[in-house]
Write a protein that binds this DNA or RNA. Structure first.
Lengths: 214, 214
DNA sequence: ACCTGAACACCGTTCAAGT
DNA sequence: ACCTGAACACCGTTCAAGT
């Protein structure tokens, strides 16, 4: 677990000794556990410290406030999402537009689905935090991955690629999130997959210039 | 201001006398004011009561807990959104698919833009509340409005209309919300409008059967 | 009958005292 | 040097006492 927070969320003390690293990790894991076991409302600093086997005071040496705990969890979750999506995009390079759309939609949904309970909990928590910086950085990494992929499409060229990527990603996010929050049932997920595929293909078709066209 | 909360969010006492209604309204308005003036973090029950000119005790006679205050504000905001969007959809009935897409996208963005500060504040707050019921009801009203409009398209027919509406709405919501949270600059809004228009048209094109086709 | 606000329970955060 | 946990400040909520 590496900690890399913006400004106000930086830990007081960077763990330099092995023992400290173990402690930070225990606190981090305790946070996730309490979140999943007891729920967001019951996630108190005392409870996390207790579960981690340290005193509140010690916890405050490594995480300057409660928000820093949550921030760390959200950050890891987003990092995993980004690397999963990026990997998928790389595999889809030099494919056709239609194949890219399908691969991207499926990857997006599959990764979102991976840890539903944690995701749902984090959605609730993220709103209370100042996650602007984190979201912007996440968004731009996803955008880069998508842009690089689309640029390599064998059967089309695109103008304003970053805008196209942005639109695709935020649209996928909106639809997926909605299904997610309604509760993912088999039928809903199937509908999501097929409609999202049509949406992305239709959009790409509409913004594409054929390879070699003016 | 009418109060109509689900189960746990119901006020203790329905105001029957004119005086009480005035009080409830004062509390409601005070909540919005404190929210916009002091921010979500400083929205405390004491502060709202103070601004409304009543004691905390009195406030608790009408709103059983803090969440009920916020719920009321969110509810009104969503109701306004729904009625604005519904009005736009009605005006677009019996138009062509392309005209509908344009009208719908512009209406969606225009209404979202209307009260940016309040919207941003409410996004943050909504996550802490149990707004599932409210969101489901809002979503289904928007879906109905959109479905009824699309059903009247002069140049196309659609299968699975509710699914199509759902996809359009949640995609628009995702993209608009992202722009919204990045901060709405003139350029971003223009990009949003044009990309969203292309997205919706491309999607509708892809799912449409021509009028009269099998 | 209705309102008030001191009192209570609880939580995030600190810091004097301990090792 | 590092850890502990009682103490503090603050907030949501209640209810005895007042009118």
């Amino acid at each position: 677990m590496n900690i890399d927070h913006p400004e106000a969320l930086k830990p007081r003390k960077t763990p330099r000794q092995a023992r400290s690293e173990v402690t930070v990790d225990a606190i981090f894991k305790a946070t996730v556990q309490v979140l999943l076991t007891d729920g967001e409302h019951r996630l108190t600093t005392t409870r996390v410290a207790e579960r981690a086997g340290v005193s509140v005071g010690t916890m405050y040496q490594y995480f300057p406030h409660k928000r820093a705990l949550l921030y760390a969890v959200i950050q890891q979750h987003l990092t995993e999402f980004v690397s999963g999506f990026d990997a998928a995009c790389r595999q889809l390079r030099n494919a056709s537009m239609a194949v890219m759309a399908e691969g991207m939609v499926n990857a997006f949904i599959d990764i979102k689905i991976r840890n539903p309970d944690l995701s749902r909990a984090l959605y609730k928590i993220a709103a209370e935090l100042d996650t602007d910086e984190l979201r912007i950085s996440t968004a731009s990494q996803l955008q880069d991955a998508c842009t690089a992929m689309l640029a390599s499409a064998t059967d089309a060229q695109f103008d304003d690629l970053p805008d196209v990527s942005f639109t695709l990603l935020t649209a996928m996010n909106g639809t997926t999130r909605a299904v997610f929050e309604l509760g993912m049932q088999e039928r809903r997920l199937n509908v999501l997959r097929s409609q999202l595929l049509t949406l992305c293909r239709g959009y790409l078709q509409a913004v594409a210039r054929e390879r070699g066209a003016p």
